[in-house]
């Protein structure tokens, strides 16, 4: 298969590229440089929103597009986020339809459902996307997810797959991995929600599965079995610092504004409410079973901490 991989220069994109290029021809697109590309991976340094990027798709002869080029940098302005994520995805979607690319894999996240007090323990793919209710920065991701869903029925010839993994942990630079790397992480006094984690390589595997002909639709990716947050922190060798929620919210709000914190205050909801997904569809239709259990996933996270330190 010949695959266009957007966002190849990110830590996760690079991992996916290394996995896919063993069996497929991979062409990467990113506006950031990709320095450690495997020799047979062709990389174009380009902003996907530019009209110029169409030339790559027009003559590329691609069978599939894996779209990972989404901005998660919470420090970027929400306007930047929105235009980059939504317009970028709209372009990719347009190219698939115009240039007869038969498969589109979009990376969404289980966070689009949002952590909420009245969430059912395991949300299925048809649950409403409530993540934007309190956390406005996730709205662009929800818009991307919805854009993909509208594509299902507008262009049924393209097999569109939307993956919604739970918190990805590993060498990736994202909020859950960074949180679990903290030595003295904040927790919320009196709360200890169940949390699902997924090993980054399992997500890459799911992407590979999603490329199989005939696979289409939305898939939750729940990863390893859930555990209480306190158990995860213990496994990550962190020592929790419990703080009452109203105080934590005020402090974090101030610290975020002063650029002293790595997480904005609405993310605290992940430390008190469940946001877990049901993986039956991924298991039955995609044939997805995570290869890493909780022990392996947490060991991997600890190793990546050593690497980055």
């Amino acid at each position: 298969m010949r695959i266009a991989l957007t966002g190849i220069s990110g830590r996760f994109g690079a991992r996916v590229a290394r996995r896919l290029h063993r069996h497929h021809a991979v062409v990467g697109l990113d506006r950031r440089p990709f320095n450690r590309a495997p020799a047979d991976v062709e990389v174009h340094r380009i902003d996907i929103r530019r009209k110029r990027s169409e030339a790559i798709f027009r003559g590329g002869g691609f069978d599939a597009v894996v779209h990972l080029n989404l901005m998660h940098d919470l420090r970027a302005s929400s306007a930047d986020h929105y235009t980059f994520n939504v317009q970028g995805t709209a372009r990719v979607v347009e190219y698939c339809q115009k240039h007869g690319i038969g498969k589109l894999v979009l990376m969404s996240s289980a966070n689009v459902y949002g952590p909420r007090a009245d969430n059912t323990q395991f949300l299925t793919e048809d649950a409403p996307l409530m993540g934007g209710e309190r956390f406005s920065d996730i709205r662009s991701l929800i818009a991307v997810d919805m854009l993909g869903q509208s594509f299902f029925w507008k262009y049924p010839d393209v097999e569109t797959v939307i993956l919604r993994p739970v918190h990805i942990v590993g060498a990736v630079n994202n909020a859950p991995s960074n949180y679990l790397r903290l030595r003295r992480p904040w927790t919320l006094a009196g709360f200890d929600p169940m949390v699902q984690l997924i090993h980054e390589d399992d997500v890459a595997r799911a992407i590979e599965e999603a490329l199989r002909p005939g696979i289409r639709g939305v898939f939750n990716l729940p990863g390893c079995r859930p555990a209480p947050l306190s158990v995860l922190i213990e496994m990550a060798r962190g020592r929790p610092r419990p703080i009452p929620h109203p105080l934590a919210e005020t402090l974090l709000d101030k610290a975020w504004a002063l650029r002293l914190a790595r997480f904005p205050a609405p993310e605290l909801d992940h430390l008190r409410y469940v946001c877990m997904v049901d993986g039956a569809r991924a298991r039955d239709v995609l044939g997805f079973a995570p290869a890493h259990d909780l022990d392996a996933t947490m060991t991997h996270l600890r190793r990546t901490r050593l690497m980055s330190a």
Binding site: D118, G190, P244, R272
Partner: peptide, 19 residues
């Protein structure tokens, strides 16, 4: 589930949100 301490106490003893 929105009550601190109570929510953890209940869930550890096997009580589940009624959905």
């Amino acid at each position: 589930p929105s009550l601190p301490f109570v929510s953890v106490f209940f869930s550890r003893l096997g009580q589940v949100l009624g959905t």
